[in-house]
């Protein structure tokens, strides 16, 4: 069972696709408003914090961190 969920991390400034490998294969999407989305499945909270640390180490201004899906429900929900 995995806790993996999808996150979107928005940073100020534009990063090229080449940063995908650095961010462990996350999708890098440059947007029109001069910000960049780093998007993808993240194994767990520890991995998320690791990712945010990478953002910090590049000196990238962090704008938002959003969870874009919910974990797979383990049972029926109404």
């Amino acid at each position: 069972m995995s806790d993996a969920v999808t996150y979107e991390i928005r940073i100020q400034g534009r990063l090229g696709d080449r940063w995908a490998a650095w961010f462990d294969g996350m999708e890098i999407v440059a947007t029109d408003d001069g910000t960049t989305l780093i998007r993808g499945r993240i194994a767990d909270q520890a991995a998320l914090h690791g990712l945010i640390q990478k953002v910090r180490d590049l000196g990238l201004p962090l704008l938002s961190v959003t969870r874009t899906d919910t974990p797979t429900p383990t049972g029926p929900t109404s």
């Binding site: 080449r18 940063w19 995908a20 490998a21 650095w22 180490d57 590049l58 000196g59």
Partner: peptide, 17 residues
């Protein structure tokens, strides 16, 4: 310099996977 090293490593990963 740490920041420079990170920038280089990102290129290494991209150019010489």
């Amino acid at each position: 310099h740490h920041l420079f090293a990170d920038m280089l490593q990102a290129r290494l990963l991209d150019e010489l996977p």
